[in-house]
């Protein structure tokens, strides 16, 4: 049995980890969505969390962002425990974290430029011209220079994701979360976003956690991959080790083989008759 002291020293021993998850259990109502998840993201790495639909990857991301309370287990971001964290401390922690949501989540009532300057406006005392210059710089980084006066509704899917990314990095975060960067995008735009993520890591030396189910994208940008299935981690390792994993479920996911469940005749009949 692992004592709390041993756990503390274990965490301290891996001081370079920017994300630490230990024995995370999460429920939606009575349904267990995450079951004993352990995860570690090292500083400076691009870590992919992947899995099929309903595997629990989005739930895991929401827990990592502190948007949901855990049923049990521990989450540490940049060395700080999320459970029981004071509101002020959580706020300070969030200033060091950038998040790009699946749909962008740009505030629809603001222009792209206003969206990007929002964190600066709320958390710094920079003057307007400095904020505008910083916003334009970040928009240039994501190849959206000149689009600061556009409304989010005027952008395409790929542009929305890049604008959301510009907002996520405007405070120069140490840790960036990217939810489904390739979802709904054509392969070319998707590949451009992959390149962008790699360039960002090089330029800003940030750790990046990407949640995706796109294999090609994952293999292209990942240092390490964590594969989730039915709320459990199947493997968390380098790309090569994940590709050569003997776990049949991992191979099913990598080779896009559908899960074939044995038919339980009694259960099937019970479902049909509603008994």
């Amino acid at each position: 049995m692992v004592t709390p002291d041993a756990q503390e020293s274990d965490i301290a021993g891996r001081a370079e980890a920017v994300v630490e998850v230990q024995d995370l259990v999460a429920h939606y109502g009575r349904h267990k969505v995450l079951d004993g998840v352990n995860l570690s993201v090292e500083a400076g790495e691009i870590h992919i969390i992947m899995g099929g639909s309903g595997s629990g990857k989005s739930t895991l991301l929401r827990h990592l962002l502190g948007l949901r309370r855990v049923s049990s287990g521990r989450i540490r971001l940049l060395g700080q425990e999320l459970e029981g964290i004071h509101r002020q401390a959580l706020q300070e922690l969030r200033k060091q974290i950038g998040v790009s949501f699946q749909g962008g989540a740009l505030l629809s009532s603001m222009t792209v430029g206003e969206n990007v300057t929002l964190p600066l406006r709320e958390h710094t005392r920079l003057d307007e011209s400095t904020m505008a210059i910083m916003a334009r710089m970040k928009l240039e980084v994501v190849n959206l220079g000149g689009f600061e006066h556009f409304m989010p509704s005027q952008l395409s899917g790929g542009m929305t994701k890049r604008a959301a990314l510009a907002r996520a990095i405007v405070m120069d975060p140490k840790l960036l979360f990217f939810d489904e960067p390739s979802a709904g995008l054509d392969p070319v735009v998707s590949a451009e976003l992959d390149e962008l993520i790699l360039r960002l890591r090089e330029a800003m030396h940030m750790s990046i956690v990407v949640v995706t189910h796109e294999l090609e994208s994952a293999f292209r940008i990942a240092d390490r991959i964590t594969v989730l299935d039915s709320g459990r981690i199947l493997i968390s390792d380098t790309v090569e080790k994940v590709k050569s994993s003997p776990n049949p479920r991992v191979q099913d996911l990598l080779n896009r083989r559908p899960r074939v469940e044995e038919l339980d005749a009694d259960a099937y009949l019970a479902r049909l008759t509603g008994e």
């Binding site: 962002l65 300070e92 998040v99 949501f101 989540a105 505030l107 629809s108 929002l118």
Partner: peptide, 17 residues
């Protein structure tokens, strides 16, 4: 409600707002 659906409220939270 629209902001909740489009994750804008979550975006505000994770930006520390």
């Amino acid at each position: 409600g629209t902001m909740v659906v489009s994750e804008e409220i979550d975006a505000l939270r994770v930006m520390g707002i």
